[in-house]
Simulated assay, not measured.
Amino acid sequence: MKKLDIIAGARPNFMKIGPITHAIHKHNESANEKIEYRLIHTGQHYDKKMSEDFFDQLNIPKPNLNLGVGSGTQAEQTGKIMLRYEEAIKAWKPQLCIVVGDVTSTMACSITAKKEGVKVAHVEGGIRSGDESMPEEINRMVTDSITDYFFTTSSVANENLKNLGHHNDKVFFAGNTMIDSLYANLERLIKPSLFDENQLKNKDYLVMTLHRPSNVDAMQSLEHLLSLINNNVDGKKVVFPMHPRTKKMYDQLGMNFENLLITGPMSYLEFIYMIKNALGVITDSGGITEETTVLGVPCMTLRNSTERPETVTQGTNEIVGTNPDNILPFLEKLLLGQWKKGSIPELWDGKTADRIVKIISGLD
């Protein structure tokens, strides 16, 4: 019997670990050596969409343990997670800790596990943006420096790990579990009520998400960016599910942009419905660029770099930068129907979790 801890701290993590839990259950139906696991939610992010409805909607098991860390500074969250996960390890003594992505919980739990003599597997290991001003980049660097087994999403990530001196026998090119979740739910998408209420039409609106400080923390810059987008979309609606950080600044603007359709956070099945049927997406999120690539939807990333370069070199994503003026030629290209055609990266096929569990089952 193998004993695993699977860690999730923020909403995107659950889309990555859900397929792994499903693959473990499938493995246990026929395998001689079963895999026992605890799904641990650190409580790093609290979101009503992470309530029971969210787990039911995506068929994700309820967490066995919620560390209830809550909000706080990076240091406060890291300390609380480490203290509470240390207690959890001592109570159950897992053989392997699986962390995913690049949130604070990923780093904190990997450090704690290693200090308690528990090996660490990093799903989505090896990705880098090169931008150390992003907390996520520091989390990736620290986590990968102590990880025992890496499950990577691309050949670029493999090369990054090789250049850091990690041995090939610890690096497994498995694909992308986020895409497993996407494929598993494409037939279950939910059309939000706002779609018909605002008379939206397929491929005739845009979707936008913004949350990074470089885009939303300076009021003048945010106003300039939103004005440029509002005035250069040929009258099309831009559906804008607003992050709390962004809303705080947006409300201070006290402005109304006629083409921006401001909404609250959406459930996963609603949000993917909106992306799938959009003409294009404007975002500063990394994960969304993976989903747009697989769905073949044009995507503009308002950042100066990306940890997912395959979404640019192979997919439908383009790096716009953080200067608001840069977006104009990209919007023009989109509206003229001149966006590049993308392809789906290798092993982004919906079977990644099965490959990961098969490998884990064979580890000593």
Results as ranks from 00 to 15, higher is better:
Phe54Met: 04
Leu206Lys: 12
Asp251Tyr: 12
Ile89Ser: 09
Met274His: 11
Leu58Val: 14
Ala75Met: 15
Lys26Glu: 15
Leu336Ile: 09
Glu76Ser: 00
His166Asp: 12
Leu194Thr: 10
Ala121Met: 05
Gln77Phe: 10
His25Trp: 14
Asn158Ser: 03
Met274Asn: 02
Pro298Met: 10
Thr311Gln: 01
Ile229Asp: 09
Leu200Glu: 12
Asn64Pro: 05
Thr263Trp: 02
Lys351Leu: 09
Gly18Ala: 04
Arg140Glu: 05
Glu318Thr: 15
Thr352Pro: 02
Pro244Asn: 04
Leu189Asn: 11
Leu363Gln: 06
Ala8Val: 08
Gly9Asp: 06
Asn232Ser: 02
Glu258Gly: 09
Gly72Ser: 01
Lys2Val: 15
Trp348Tyr: 00
Pro324Leu: 11
Ala157Asp: 00
Thr73Met: 03
Ile275Arg: 03
Val238Phe: 10
Ile272Glu: 02
Ser343Asn: 07
Ala218His: 15
Ser343Gln: 15
Tyr183Met: 00
Arg188Thr: 11
Lys2Tyr: 15
Asn232Pro: 00
Gly264Gln: 14
Asp144Tyr: 04
Val357Leu: 11
Ser305Asp: 15
Thr293Leu: 08
Thr322Asp: 03
Leu206Ala: 13
Asp131Ile: 04
Val281Thr: 08
Ala108Cys: 08
Pro19Arg: 00
Lys3Gln: 07
Phe172Leu: 09
Asp5Gly: 03
Pro345Ala: 03
Lys236Gly: 02
Phe172Thr: 09
Asn158Leu: 01
Leu228Met: 02
Asp5Phe: 15
Thr283Val: 14
Thr21Gln: 00
Thr73Cys: 08
Ile288Trp: 05
Pro324Ile: 12
Ile35Met: 05
Glu318Pro: 13
Tyr37Ala: 08
His25Ala: 14
Met82Glu: 14
Gly165Met: 11
Thr283Tyr: 09
Gly235Leu: 00
Gly126Cys: 12
Gly350Ile: 03
Pro265Asp: 04
Gly175Ser: 00
Asn323Glu: 12
Leu279Glu: 12
Asn231Lys: 13
Ser343Glu: 14
Glu137Ser: 05
Lys3Tyr: 11
Gly9Gln: 07
Gly175Arg: 05
His122Trp: 02
Thr143Lys: 14
Gly342Ala: 15
Thr73Glu: 03
Glu76Asn: 10
Tyr46Ser: 14
Thr143Cys: 13
Pro241Tyr: 06
Ile111Asn: 08
Asp169His: 13
Thr152Cys: 08
Asn28Ile: 04
Val320Met: 04
Lys247Pro: 05
Val239Ala: 04
Leu328Pro: 07
Asn256Tyr: 12
Leu65His: 03
Leu226Cys: 11
Asp131Tyr: 08
Ile262Ser: 02
Pro19Ile: 09
Leu328Ala: 14
Asp180Leu: 05
Ile6Cys: 06
Arg84Asp: 10
Thr143Glu: 14
Asn215Phe: 05
Lys358Ile: 12
Lys114Leu: 07
Thr306Lys: 09
Arg128Asn: 01
Pro135Lys: 02
Glu116Lys: 15
Ile262Gly: 08
Met82Asp: 04
Gly79Met: 13
Val103Cys: 03
Gln57His: 12
Glu124His: 07
Thr293Asn: 10
Ser214Val: 06
Thr311Met: 06
